[in-house]
Amino acid sequence: MVQADSHSQFLLRRLHTLAGVVPVGLFLLEHLFTNSMATNGAAAFNSAAATIESIPFLHFIEFFFIFVPLIYHGVYGLYVAFTSGYNSGQFPWWRNVMFILQRLTGIITFVFIIFHLWTTRFSGKAPTFEMVHQLVSNPAYFWFMLIGTVAATFHFSNGIWSFCVHWGITVGQRAQRVMSYVTMILFIVLAGVGVDALIAFTHTAS
């Protein structure tokens, strides 16, 4: 029998769920919010982006509060997705399907984030409306962004539901059910905000 006091797996796992919400999830919200500025025109977006650029110690914050937790959550998430079984063919119940979608959208998000960062943050170009506009003018890129955005917002929203169970916040069956509705509404709202911003970027800056 394994030593009962070896809690490392437990802690790593708890850290994973926490990272998904606190730094990474919050960043996602912030990111969606900034991008949605694009719906008010190029100027509004550029000024929001500039505000972020002006945060002191930006690189430090980005690295420790976004990249590290994101990489941790992402890589560990891939491992979790790999160790899970998938049996919705035999048991096609709602939560089981959501369980699979959570893992599937995680993997999509992983690929999406890498490509997204590579073409934006690490492209060497300044984060301006014009740069994004150039990218999404390519229909393939636009659809890729769309799928990524929907996947990421789904993953986050359904992740909130899962988080509430993992931390013992929603215990009873009714509480969990109500939370299902709440998080699905959250998903629709966030996905709407993200897609709306994407569409806004397709318009030329005028």
Binding site: Q9, F10, R13, R14, V80, S84, N87, F91, W93, R95, N96, F99, I100, Q102, S162, V165, H166, W167, G168, I169, T170, V171, G172, Q173, Q176
Partner: peptide
């Protein structure tokens, strides 16, 4: 921590045991 909340358990339990409530309560 190995539980991933697929919640099949509560669907198949012949005794209708509220397993998912138990799991969340133990998580707490």
């Amino acid at each position: 921590h190995e539980c991933g909340n697929a919640q099949n358990c509560v669907e198949v339990c012949p005794k209708g045991i509220p397993l998912t409530t138990s799991i969340a309560a133990m998580n707490r």
